[in-house]
Design a protein around this nucleic acid. Structure first.
Length: 553
RNA sequence: GCCUCAGUAGCUCAAAGGAUAGAGCAACGGACUUCUAAUCCGUAGGUUGGGGGUUCGAGUCCCUCCUGGGGUGCCA
C-alpha cells in the first residue's frame, strides 16, 4: 500500500509543480486516484488523473498526462512511467524493488502486514450459536468468514477480539432438556413422544444413551432441567471442538444471561422509556422503531409472560459493545438476521449511541451439492449436515477454502464431490501444491548433500526471467489485498489472491528449474532463494485463510 | 405486498466508476527418462436478465420491469 501512497503524492506534487511553472492554470487539485489496472500489461499501477482533470485544466487528457509526467519525480520503487490510452499514466515496479521483497518474505513472518489498523481495537462477533445442537454448515460459513476477517484485520494492524454471544437459558434450553428427557425415557422403554417443538436431531438420542450408559435408570424421576443442564454443557463443548477442527476459536464468550443478572436489561428498558421510545399497547411494550425508518414498531416485552423479546438483550449487548470503546465492531450474521440487525442498531441509537462503529456483514446461505444435486436440509427435523460431518468428509482445509472462496453476498454451492476430488478441478490442492513443490526442492537439495543454507547470500539481481518477475509482482500485491479485504469487509479476496498466486507460481516452477545441470550455479542459488521466499509466502497466505501448508501431498 | 441477496462464457464464479469484461472447470489440440503431471502451453467460448438515466467513461451508481434464493413471529 505504501507504493500507492507514494504515487499519489508524487502525482499531486507534479501537478503543483506544473501549476507553478504555468503549464496548468490555477485549480484546486482533487484527490488523486491510483489503481491497479485489470490488464497487467498496462503496468503495476495506473492513474486516470489526467482524464479527471480535463475539465478543470481545460486541456486534452493526453496533454495533461504528458505535462504531469514531465514534472513527475517517480518514487524509488518505480522504474517506468508511460502515457497510454486516452490519458492514463502507467507505472511499473522496478526489478530491484521486487528483488528486495524476497528477503522480506523470508525474514518477516508477518509479510504483507499493513498499518491501517495500527493502534485500533476491533471486535468481531461470529458463530454465536446457542447450545442446542451441532454447528450447522450455515453457521460454519459465518465462522469461517469471521475468523478469516479476524486474521486479515490482525494483519492490517488491528487488535482483534473474537467474540461469541450465546444463550444457555430460557425456553430453548427448557425444550432441549425435555427432548433429552423424553429420549432417555424412551431408552428405558417408556411410551413417550416428542412434540413438534422439541429437538428432533439424532444427537439428542445420543445424549440420552450416554446418560443411560452412565446412570442406568436412576434418572427416571429427574426433572427436565437436569437433562437440560447436561445437554447444554455437552453440546457447548462439542460445538467448541467442532469449530476448533477448522481453526476457529473465540477470545470472549459473552453470555446473554449476564445481561439479565447484572441489571443491563432493566437499565436498557428504563433508558428506552425515558427517551420516549417505549410504549404500551395490547398488554405488551413496544419499541418505536418507526421513528428510525422501520415500517412498523416491534415488541420489546411480551404480553403473554412479561418477558423481553430477544431484541432487548441484543440491544443491551450492543450497548455493552459501544461502552467497550472498540474502534470497529463487525457483526457477522446469516441471511435470517437481515431484518433484525437494523432493528437492534435502531435500539442502540435510541439509547443515545452513535452506531457508525458497527458494521453488519450478512452472508448468504450454503447449498450442499452431492452428485450434482442440492442436498435438502431442514434444521427443525434435525435433517441437516453438520460441520463435523463436513470435516469428516472433505477435511478442514477444503471446508475453510470453499466457505471463503465466494463473496459473502453470494450463495455458496458447496460441491462435496469437487471438494473431495484429487484432481486439477480442486483449487485447494492447486494452492497447497505450490507449497509442497517448494518443500520438495529443498528436500531434494539437502538429499543431494548440499548445504541447506547455500542460498543465503545469493545474487538476487540474476532473477530476471519473466516468470520470476511476475511471481514477485503478485507477491507484492499481498499487502494491498489485505488492506482491500479489510476496508471493504470482504475476506474472500484472500482466497482469490491465493489462487492467483499459485497460478503465477506453477508456470514459474515449470520454466525456472533449480536442480538441473544446465542452470548456472549463481542463478541456481538465486532461484533457490526465490523458492524459499515462495515457500514462506504460501505458508503466510494459507495461514491467513486458516489452512495448513503441507510439506507433502 | 414489503425487506434483502443474486442474475456476467455450457457450468462454478471474479472484477476500487476506468483501457480490449477475466479465471477455473467442462470441450478441443499439445507437453512427462519431472526439483511428484494434484502441473504446464495453446484453441474456442460474451448484447454482463430487459429497458431508461447519470458522465469524459457503467457489469459496477440511480429509476423501472422480469426471474430465482432468503427473510418478513409477542422464536433467536
Amino acid at each position: 500500500m505504501q507504493v500507492i501512497e507514494d504515487l499519489k503524492q508524487a502525482v499531486h506534487a507534479a501537478i503543483e509543480k506544473a501549476q507553478e511553472a504555468g503549464d496548468f492554470g490555477a485549480f484546486a487539485i482533487p484527490e488523486i486516484a491510483v489503481e491497479r489496472p485489470k490488464d497487467t500489461t498496462h503496468g503495476d499501477y495506473a492513474s486516470p488523473t489526467a482524464l479527471r482533470l480535463a475539465k478543470l485544466a481545460r486541456m486534452k487528457p493526453r496533454d495533461i498526462a504528458e505535462t504531469i509526467i514531465k514534472h513527475l519525480a517517480a518514487p524509488a520503487a518505480i522504474s517506468e512511467v508511460t502515457l497510454a490510452g486516452p490519458g492514463f499514466i502507467n507505472f511499473r515496479l522496478s526489478n530491484q524493488y521486487l528483488h528486495g521483497l524476497i528477503e522480506q518474505m523470508i525474514g518477516d513472518e508477518t509479510f504483507g502486514r499493513t498499518t491501517q489498523g495500527a493502534g485500533k481495537r476491533a471486535q468481531i462477533e461470529f458463530v454465536s450459536a446457542n447450545p442446542t445442537g451441532p454447528i450447522t454448515i450455515g453457521r460454519t460459513r459465518g465462522g469461517v468468514i469471521g475468523d478469516t476477517l479476524a486474521r486479515l484485520m490482525e494483519a492490517a494492524g488491528y487488535d482483534v477480539t473474537r467474540e461469541y454471544y450465546y444463550n444457555d437459558a430460557g425456553r430453548q434450553i427448557q425444550m432441549l432438556g425435555e427432548s433429552v428427557q423424553i429420549r432417555y425415557l424412551q431408552e428405558l422403554g417408556q411410551e413417550k413422544e416428542l412434540t413438534d417443538d422439541h429437538y428432533q436431531g439424532a444427537y439428542i438420542r445420543d445424549l440420552a444413551r450416554e446418560l443411560k450408559a452412565e446412570h442406568g435408570e436412576t434418572l427416571s424421576d429427574s426433572p427436565a432441567d437436569y437433562f437440560g443442564d447436561y445437554a447444554k454443557s455437552a453440546i457447548s463443548s462439542q460445538q467448541k471442538a467442532s469449530l476448533q477442527r477448522v481453526g476457529i476459536t473465540h477470545d470472549v464468550y459473552f453470555n446473554e444471561n449476564d445481561l439479565y443478572s447484572d441489571g443491563s436489561l432493566t437499565d436498557t428498558l428504563e433508558t428506552l422509556a425515558q427517551n420516549g421510545y417505549l410504549y404500551e399497547k395490547d398488554g405488551a411494550k413496544w419499541l418505536k422503531t418507526t421513528a428510525f425508518g422501520d415500517d412498523k414498531d416491534r415488541v420489546a416485552v411480551r404480553s403473554s409472560d412479561g418477558r423481553p423479546t430477544y431484541r432487548v438483550p441484543d440491544i443491551a449487548y450492543h450497548k455493552n459493545k459501544a461502552e467497550r470503546n472498540f474502534d470497529v465492531v463487525v457483526d457477522i450474521f446469516g441471511p435470517d438476521h437481515h431484518a433484525v440487525a437494523p432493528q437492534v442498531l435502531m435500539g442502540v441509537q435510541m439509547l443515545g449511541y452513535d452506531t457508525a462503529f458497527v458494521h453488519t456483514l450478512l452472508h448468504q446461505i450454503v447449498n450442499l451439492i452431492r452428485d450434482g444435486v442440492t442436498v435438502k436440509m431442514s434444521t427443525r427435523r434435525g435433517n441437516y449436515v453438520t460441520l463435523d460431518e463436513l470435516v469428516d468428509e472433505v477435511g478442514p482445509d477444503a471446508v475453510r477454502y470453499f466457505m471463503i472462496a465466494r463473496s459473502a453476498t453470494s450463495h455458496v454451492n458447496f460441491d462435496l464431490d469437487l471438494a473431495l476430488a484429487q484432481s486439477d478441478e480442486n483449487p485447494v490442492f492447486y494452492i497447497q501444491n505450490a507449497h509442497v513443490r517448494c518443500c520438495g526442492i529443498f528436500r531434494k537439495w539437502v538429499e543431494a548433500g548440499l548445504a541447506a543454507d547455500a542460498d543465503t547470500n545469493a545474487d538476487l539481481s540474476l532473477l530476471t526471467h519473466e516468470k520470476e518477475i511476475e511471481f514477485l509482482r503478485k507477491a507484492h500485491e499481498l499487502s494491498e489485498v489485505i488492506d482491500n479485504a479489510v476496508t471493504q469487509y470482504e475476506p474472500h479476496h484472500i482466497a482469490f489472491y491465493a489462487y492467483d498466486l499459485a497460478a503465477d507460481f506453477h508456470p514459474l516452477y515449470d520454466a525456472c528449474r533449480v536442480l538441473n545441470d544446465s542452470v548456472p550455479e549463481d542463478l541456481r542459488l538465486a532461484r533457490l532463494r526465490l523458492y524459499r521466499a515462495a515457500q514462506h509466502l504460501f505458508g503466510r497466505v494459507l495461514d491467513l485463510m486458516g489452512m495448513t501448508a503441507p510439506e507433502r501431498m
